[in-house]
Measured scan of single mutants.
Amino acid sequence: SFNTVDEWLEAIKMGQYKESFANAGFTSFDVVSQMMMEDILRVGVTLAGHQKKILNSIQVMRAQMN
């Protein structure tokens, strides 16, 4: 498990989005775990492969939080 959203993004090789997530207010796992595709688009993730990777990881995160 990760301590910060930045660490999580690095771990899934999506570190290039750290600033975008932070600027959009997605700075805690409570918020990130609620993200939908529209949120991912809003933070500027436009590549389908990256969207899928982030969404898949969020689903895993949700499962671990319950």
Score class of each variant (00 low, 15 high):
S1E: 11
S1R: 10
S1H: 13
S1Q: 14
S1N: 13
S1Y: 14
S1W: 14
S1T: 14
F2A: 06
F2R: 05
F2G: 06
F2P: 07
F2S: 06
F2V: 07
N3V: 10
N3R: 14
N3K: 14
N3H: 11
N3S: 13
T4K: 06
T4M: 06
T4N: 11
V5E: 00
V5Y: 03
V5W: 03
V5I: 10
V5S: 02
V5G: 00
V5K: 01
D6P: 10
E7A: 09
E7R: 06
E7I: 06
W8S: 00
W8F: 04
W8I: 00
W8M: 02
W8Y: 02
L9C: 02
L9T: 00
L9Q: 02
E10Q: 07
E10H: 06
E10M: 10
E10N: 08
E10G: 06
E10A: 07
E10L: 06
E10P: 01
A11M: 09
A11K: 08
I12M: 10
I12F: 04
I12E: 04
K13R: 11
K13T: 11
K13H: 15
M14L: 09
M14G: 02
M14I: 03
M14D: 00
G15C: 06
G15E: 09
G15F: 06
Q16H: 06
Q16T: 06
Q16K: 08
Q16G: 06
Y17I: 02
Y17S: 01
K18R: 12
K18I: 09
K18V: 06
K18T: 06
E19L: 13
E19D: 12
E19N: 12
S20L: 12
S20T: 08
S20C: 09
F21G: 00
F21L: 03
F21D: 00
F21P: 01
A22S: 10
A22Q: 12
N23I: 12
N23G: 08
A24Q: 09
A24M: 09
A24S: 09
A24E: 09
A24C: 09
G25P: 01
G25C: 05
G25H: 05
G25W: 03
G25A: 04
G25D: 04
F26R: 03
T27F: 06
T27N: 10
S28K: 06
S28H: 08
S28C: 07
S28D: 10
F29Q: 03
F29T: 04
D30I: 11
D30E: 14
D30F: 13
D30G: 11
D30A: 15
D30C: 14
D30S: 12
D30P: 08
V31G: 07
V31T: 13
V31D: 08
V31C: 09
V31H: 09
V31W: 06
V32H: 02
V32D: 01
V32R: 00
V32K: 00
V32A: 02
V32F: 02
S33I: 14
S33A: 11
S33D: 04
S33Q: 08
S33V: 14
Q34F: 07
Q34D: 07
M35G: 01
M35I: 05
M35F: 04
M36H: 14
M36K: 15
M37T: 06
M37A: 10
M37E: 09
E38P: 10
E38C: 09
E38N: 08
E38W: 08
D39N: 03
D39C: 03
D39Y: 03
D39F: 03
D39Q: 05
D39T: 04
D39M: 03
I40A: 02
I40G: 00
I40R: 00
I40F: 06
I40Y: 03
L41K: 11
L41A: 10
L41Q: 11
L41M: 12
R42P: 01
R42V: 08
R42K: 11
R42Y: 10
V43A: 14
G44S: 03
G44K: 03
G44F: 02
G44Y: 02
G44N: 04
G44T: 02
V45W: 01
V45D: 01
V45C: 04
V45I: 12
T46K: 12
T46M: 10
T46S: 09
T46H: 11
T46C: 07
T46Y: 10
T46N: 09
T46D: 07
L47K: 12
L47R: 11
A48S: 11
A48Q: 10
A48H: 12
G49T: 14
G49P: 13
G49L: 13
H50W: 04
H50C: 03
H50S: 03
K52R: 13
K52L: 13
K53Q: 13
K53I: 15
K53W: 15
I54F: 05
I54M: 06
I54D: 00
I54H: 00
I54V: 04
L55A: 05
L55P: 00
L55K: 04
L55H: 06
L55S: 04
L55E: 05
L55G: 03
N56F: 11
N56T: 13
N56C: 14
N56E: 15
N56M: 14
N56D: 15
S57W: 13
S57A: 15
S57C: 13
I58N: 01
I58Q: 01
I58D: 00
Q59R: 14
Q59G: 09
Q59I: 12
Q59W: 10
V60I: 14
V60L: 15
V60R: 11
M61L: 14
R62H: 08
R62E: 05
R62S: 07
R62A: 10
A63I: 10
A63P: 05
A63N: 14
A63W: 06
Q64G: 10
Q64D: 10
Q64H: 15
M65W: 06
M65R: 06
M65E: 06
N66K: 09
N66I: 15
